[in-house]
């Protein structure tokens, strides 16, 4: 078949033709990437090295070298503090989301009456999680675990803790439900991954006398490892892109602030991007290391 088709088309080889057709399908993405992602990314980087002012005639830039970056990292106390807060909150939320979504997916994968109803409940937040909705709910105190952080005993206990321990604990208490709300897509992915596990493995294990508990640790959990890695990365990115994220709000405010400006905001967005990549690499290495160790 290959022979005839390439002969009919004259000199063009089959692989060349295939490549050209492939490019035809993805061409629009390559153009779009160049226009809507790559060019703006480069432009933002150039802005970050400049003092940018918007005038009626257009944008005027004045080259300032790395001044915006050093200001973000060394002079601006708010930005660094927000960045650290973001890193802490993300690393506190991630394991909770992973464990919670895995447990719920394991439950929902069982056979019991009313499974559909519970599925509906646990996927619900996927649909309604938007910035303004979350903001309203948080402002009205609907997302904290029933005011636990306000209870005198808890407050006293918190006051005793050193600051570095206190802030993650406080974050946990005040936004526990919110953290769980970010588990919807993760539950979905775990569930579809669980349903792909070969049923005959469990049967074989049961015949060999393995208990359900052993099957879980020896069959279910290892087969979820690749999925966990994907979910972890997805979770970190979603948390980092969420519009109520404090760092993002600060960058947005600074874009239009008099003392900030586009150049400064661009520099901060690149610092933020860098921190996000570092977080992703750490998560990737950590989970990879864990799964390798478990595999041994």
């Amino acid at each position: 078949m290959t022979q005839t088709s390439s002969l009919k088309r004259g000199e063009m080889r089959h692989s060349t033709r295939e490549a050209l057709t492939g490019y035809g399908f993805v061409a629009i993405w390559i153009i779009g990437f160049a226009i809507f992602t790559f060019a703006p990314l480069v432009q933002t980087f150039i802005y970050s090295l400049n003092q940018v002012t918007i005038e009626s005639t257009g944008v005027s830039t004045e080259y300032v070298d790395w001044a915006n970056y050093s200001r973000a990292l060394f002079t601006d106390p708010t930005f660094v503090e927000l960045l650290i807060g973001y890193a802490i909150e993300t690393s506190v939320s991630l394991p909770i989301i992973l464990i919670f979504s895995m447990i719920i997916a394991l439950f929902l994968n069982l056979d019991f009456k009313g499974k559909g109803l519970f599925r509906t409940i646990f996927f619900l937040p996927v649909v309604i999680t938007s910035g303004p909705v979350i903001r309203e709910l948080t402002e009205q105190g609907a997302t904290s675990t029933a005011g636990l952080a306000q209870v005198a005993a808890v407050a006293d206990f918190l006051a005793e803790l050193p600051r570095s321990v206190r802030s993650p604990v406080e974050y946990l208490l005040t936004s526990f439900i919110l953290i769980l709300w970010f588990s919807g897509v993760q539950i979905l992915i775990y569930l579809s991954s669980l349903q792909k596990v070969d049923k005959s493995l469990y049967e074989a294990a049961a015949i060999d006398g393995a208990s359900a508990w052993e099957s879980f640790w020896k069959i279910t959990l290892p087969s979820l490892t690749p999925t966990t890695l994907v979910i972890a990365i997805y979770t970190v990115i979603t948390l980092s892109h969420f519009s109520e994220n404090k760092v993002l709000k600060y960058i947005y405010d600074q874009t239009y602030a008099v003392e900030g400006g586009i150049g400064y905001a661009s520099a901060m967005s690149f610092v933020y991007f860098g921190v996000l990549v570092v977080l992703l690499v750490v998560v990737y290495l950590f989970l990879n290391f864990q799964s390798r160790r478990a595999g041994k």
Partner: peptide, 15 residues
């Protein structure tokens, strides 16, 4: 493109 935060591309796009 999934990882890049919108903040790093949105200003030139907007302009």
């Amino acid at each position: 493109t999934f990882i890049i935060p919108a903040q790093s591309t949105v200003i030139p796009q907007m302009l």
